[in-house]
Design a protein around this nucleic acid. Sequence first.
DNA 1: CCATGTTCTTGATCTGGATCAAATGAATAA
DNA 2: TTATTCATTTGATCCAGATCAAGAACATGG
Lengths: 271, 271
Amino acid sequence: MANATPSSKSKAARMKEDTVVDLSAIRTTCQNCGLYKLCLPMGLAEGDMDKLDKVIKRRRKIEKGEHLYRMRDTFSTVYAIRSGSVKTYTSIENGSEQVTGFHLPGELLGLNAVSTKFHTDSAMALETTSVCEVPFDRLEDLTREIPSMQHHILHVMSEEIQSDHCQLMMIAKMPAEARLARFLLSLSNHFDNRGYSSSEFNLSMSRNDIANLLGLAVETVSRLFSHFQDQGLLTVERKHIVIHDMDGLMDVTTKCPSQPLPNDSSSNQAS
Amino acid sequence: MANATPSSKSKAARMKEDTVVDLSAIRTTCQNCGLYKLCLPMGLAEGDMDKLDKVIKRRRKIEKGEHLYRMRDTFSTVYAIRSGSVKTYTSIENGSEQVTGFHLPGELLGLNAVSTKFHTDSAMALETTSVCEVPFDRLEDLTREIPSMQHHILHVMSEEIQSDHCQLMMIAKMPAEARLARFLLSLSNHFDNRGYSSSEFNLSMSRNDIANLLGLAVETVSRLFSHFQDQGLLTVERKHIVIHDMDGLMDVTTKCPSQPLPNDSSSNQAS
DNA sequence: CCATGTTCTTGATCTGGATCAAATGAATAA
DNA sequence: TTATTCATTTGATCCAGATCAAGAACATGG
């Protein structure tokens, strides 16, 4: 659903109106979007692609600090990130907030609101960000026409659940240094998948946001960055990260204390 | 989690039936299952119910400690819990495990495996448990015939995501006593929804499992139970819990240190 | 340019909850 | 019945990481 590289004009001319006035000349479609492999189901037929293209409103631009949606907003739209980055977070009664994730181009946002009809988290751009908007009811109709599309939606949601479980385990069980190392490797991996350098990149989020996601204090995150640098694992200068020793970082990831004995099965037993 | 004190007998009677040996004669259908309101979409037409009934294999009985499925098993079936209770957990490379949830009658299990085609968590019965099995490919076909069914699947998954986010926030931000209080209130609430007493019930899971879910040590959980009892909030005797002061427990829930000032909006800003 | 507010870093302390240790209670098996 | 094993409780100690404090590096607006 995200279109990054505009090209085929002729096909686009047939398209319906979209909200952006002065970009109407540059009609991009899912077909020629460099990200479609990330946000669309594999193996869509040509005709199916066209159906999808008719449903999508393209290109909403969000400035840094602006919200894509806020908690309690009514849910009507799913977003595909085209460029930039977004953080999602929920806030609890008392006002404290919990960052639930950072999202990069190719990711689908907003699906977790399906059950409530209003958003239960907020999504804020960490930098200038552009997204494709997909009206959910239209998308839901489409899923009935295109089986692989339905499967894809389920796919995306189940991946979110799995990543949340992973995050849970991390916060509950891993020491601070392993959490940060994992976070950096996961970012590195995402960039790799998107064709960027996996060893050198800029963080678009603040130390505060990172700390929050990982369940740590800002000071701890800052100190860990310094420690990693002292150990020669990476170089960090404000937002700029260069990873020197990927394997070393990987090792930090698995440094968990009190590993149960290999033959420990007791914890698998019911009460 | 648990067989508690039934407040509505008719419902309880239905829950008990599957422990009896030869029930093959008594064909139950979704229509007359006391739990259908919990595990089925509302407003299914009569004909739709029949279609669903044809797809469902009823009544698989699982003994305490047995697995419904294990991590890495190929995914083919979704399970609806009829009676009993189940814990789900994932294990990481080094062997330590993370309990991701406890599941009560009416809940749907296994959907999070959709994206991977094999399970990424394991599900173990905490007591004798009976489930309905639903072949996923058949279910997926059904969703195309019954729109509200598709919506329901999405509903269930998005609820799971939301509850995971809640869990994340809890582990990352709340002190131990608030986590346990929340856990008990959530259990209480579930029992309430299923027609059981919300103030008196049995825990089907071990202290170890509770500690694991909440990201705490067993000793901490045990101590907290004692503290709560000393404060007169509840009585605990092994697995048996009687809540005396629901509001008091609620207060513990919100006892989070370092609440941001009410006008604190800085943390919502991007870096 | 300077003034003001943010974000990030570093150091010094403090503490919630983990870990270690040991006794008790329940459940299961012989 | 008595071992044996596992679950739970309680006490004593320890430590990873939070909190407090104070600069340093940037950013933003006048």
